[in-house]
Structure formats: C-alpha cells, structure tokens
Amino acid sequence: MLEELAHIGRDPATNGYVRDAWSDCDLLLREWFAGEAARRGLDTREDRNGNLWAWWGDPSATPGVVTGSHLDSVRQGGAFDGPLGVVSAFAALDILRNRDFVPGRPLGIACFTDEEGARFGVPCMGSRLLTGVLAPSRALGLVDDEGDTLADVLVRTGREPGRIGRDDETLGHLGTFVELHVEQGRGLADLDRPVGVAGAIWPHGRWRFDFHGQANHAGTTRLADRDDPMLPFARMVLAAREAAAGHDAVATVGKVRVSPGNANAVPGLVSAWLDARGPDERDVRALVAELTEGAGRAQVSEESWTPVVDFDVALRDRLAAVAGGDSAAPVLPTGAGHDAGILASAGVPSAMLFVRNPTGVSHSPAEHAEQADCEAGVVALANVLEDLCR
C-alpha cells in the first residue's frame, strides 16, 4: 500500500513529498482511502470537516475503537509521517479478519484532514475543528500562499464552508482512538526496540512575527536612512536559539516571507513563524514572552497552541503490555503534535504506537522505517485493536 502511494505528490528532484490539504494530490489520496475501504466492505463517511472514516460495524449504535492517522505532508516531507498510520490500520484490519476475529465493538479507520497545517498554517485542522478547539470563523478566513481562503478552497472541492465546526455526532462515535506513527526521533533506535508507546506530547505552538520597515532601493539608500526589518528579524532568530537553551525547550524559525522580495530592495515587511516546544508549558510561554519583548515594535500573533497531553495512563499501559510481545513496549514522550493529542485533550480516550525510525530524521525525505519494523507495528496494532474490541 505504501508503494501505491509513493508517486503521489513526490518531488523527483528531492524525493520529498508535497501533499497540501485539499490539493489535487490530497484529493487523489482521499480516493485511494475510499477505494481501500470499499475493497474491504467498510462504510466510508466524510464528516463536516473533511475527515474520513471507514467503519466495520455501526458506530451510531455503540461507540467504536478507531485507528488511523493522516495522508497530507509537510512540504518536502517523508513517505512515512502520516501514511504509515493509515496503511497500518488497513493492514491490521486484514490481520484481524484472517484470524476470523469478530469485533465486539465497531472498528473504524480514520484519515484526518490537514494534520500538518502546511497550507493554512494551523496544524491538526481537521481534529481541531471536529472537537471545537478551532473556531469555524477563524478557520474559514485562513489564507494560503496563493491568497485563497479555506472557504474558497472548500467551495472549489464541492464542500460547504458553512458546515464546518464541532461535530458532536462524529465525536459520539469515538469510544477509543489509537494512532500509529513513525517515531520522530531516535528513542526506539537507542533502545533497540521496533515498537513503542507514547506517554505524553510536549506543549507546543506557532507564533507569527511581523517586522515592519520601509521598502527602499538597495543601492541608493544610505545605511543611516534605512528602516530594514531584516535586522530585527535576524536578531530574533539568534535570540530564539539562546532562549530555547535557557528554558530547556526547542525553538525553530522554519518559515519566512519577505516582501516585496526583490534582491535589489530593502524589504518593507518580514514575516516569520516561530515554532516553540518543551516539556514544561511555563518554559515555552516564558521563551515566547522573552522573544516578543525583544522584538520591539514587531506584531506578534499566536496561530496555534496545544497544551501538554498526558495520554490516559490505564490505556497507555494496556497498549504497552499488549504491543510489546514478550516484554512491555517502552513508553516515550514526544515533542511532535498529533491528532491523537487533540482528541485526548477533548476527552476521547486516546493513545499512540510508535514504529522505530533508525535515523530519527523526520519532516524530511530522509525519514525512514525498515520493512520489518513496519510489519511489527502492524502486528502490534492488530493485537491492540483485538484487545480493545473484545
């Protein structure tokens, strides 16, 4: 199944993937999901926010056990972040049927929309809208790099913008959610274990810094007469690294937009996006406050925030016992955000399985997982689903 997806959105120059939400690539991936569900006789539904659900059994009668992940990617991302969880969900269901297992609860496979937030800047868009964490009015007004709003894009793909928002009917179908994901770090590689369980997700967020100046000619404007926003921006980037070290956190400026963007002009505006994360919410907040104060007259706006997520301890331990085989699977924290974290924060019992990443590299074409480890992840997921669906 991963091979069937390998060509969709792949950049031949880098071998990275560009799978923005609601793009032509995303629509092809949605068709693939529906096709896999149909081949297995599952009932496929799209909720008000574009999330896809394939059901074995009727969740309207009894809340079900759901697994899955997402199919969109960061720009120039890898082949495993997201798709591995969706593919593994279908493969685990196949294993259960080969065992002649009949679930005592409905079993669902989910594909969340716009988990990465690459197009509109807000990660986990589908699950945030589903749970009501993100207001529809704000979501519909988000603008992509081409100047299109989410509302515009939804209309073009045949959806109704007025329908998005908290979906209590769909939430009522979710009894338990388990997301399998390639590990985004080296924890399992260092422990020499193929599969692990998430213990907690660090608090994390994104902030936009707009540095305003005056656009002017690069050759004729004296240094003393310049109001160059690139200078406070550069100072902020350096300060972010120092502040992160001082607050036991991580901070990254990975996206910058310069206007007007001419090589022979002093910029008039530099917009930069800060990603900050850490084990302790107070440290992350203090880091951002320090950078905001140091940025002077820059405009700073919070685009997303997710508090710490401590996964349900009983469910986590149950997964560790079932997924680990002869010994309990290791429990690891993570600095990466996931739809499972959004659902957990909204009160849906949720947990995560990780599959070993030998290099620890993620959000990059170098992201990898060995075939044997992926298969071990599928077996572990199947065992977990069988246990939860009894």
Score class of each variant (00 low, 15 high):
M352R: 11
T334N: 12
P333K: 07
P333T: 00
G337N: 07
G337W: 14
A372L: 12
V361E: 09
V361P: 00
T359L: 02
R356A: 11
L353I: 12
T334W: 08
D339S: 10
H368G: 02
R356M: 12
I342D: 00
V355H: 01
P333N: 03
E367G: 01
P333H: 03
G360H: 05
I342F: 02
N357V: 00
S362N: 07
P330Q: 00
S362Y: 14
T334F: 06
F354S: 08
P333Y: 01
E367M: 04
A372C: 02
P358C: 08
G335E: 01
R356W: 08
D373E: 01
L353F: 12
A344H: 08
A369I: 11
A369W: 03
V348K: 11
T359R: 06
A346R: 09
L332Y: 08
A329Q: 03
P330Y: 10
R356G: 12
V355M: 03
P333W: 02
S345P: 01
G335A: 08
T334K: 09
T359I: 06
A369V: 14
P333F: 00
P333V: 00
H338I: 06
S362R: 06
A369P: 07
P358R: 13
M352N: 10
P358K: 12
V355S: 05
L353V: 13
S350R: 09
V331Q: 07
V331C: 00
G347L: 01
A369E: 10
S350N: 10
F354M: 11
A329W: 14
A372M: 03
Q371P: 12
P365Q: 04
S364L: 11
M352P: 06
G335R: 09
I342L: 06
G347F: 02
L343Y: 12
A344G: 03
G341H: 05
G347A: 01
R356D: 11
L353R: 13
E370D: 15
A366F: 15
H368A: 15
P333R: 02
D339L: 03
D339T: 10
S362W: 07
S362F: 14
A346I: 05
S345W: 06
L332S: 00
P349L: 07
A329H: 11
Q371D: 14
F354I: 09
Q371K: 15
H338R: 14
A340V: 13
D373F: 01
G347P: 05
F354W: 14
M352L: 13
H338M: 09
A372S: 13
A351P: 03
A369Q: 09
Q371H: 14
P349Q: 07
S364G: 09
L353D: 07
A344P: 03
V348M: 05
P330G: 05
R356Q: 10
T334S: 15
H338Q: 12
E370T: 10
L332T: 01
H363K: 05
H363D: 04
A336C: 04
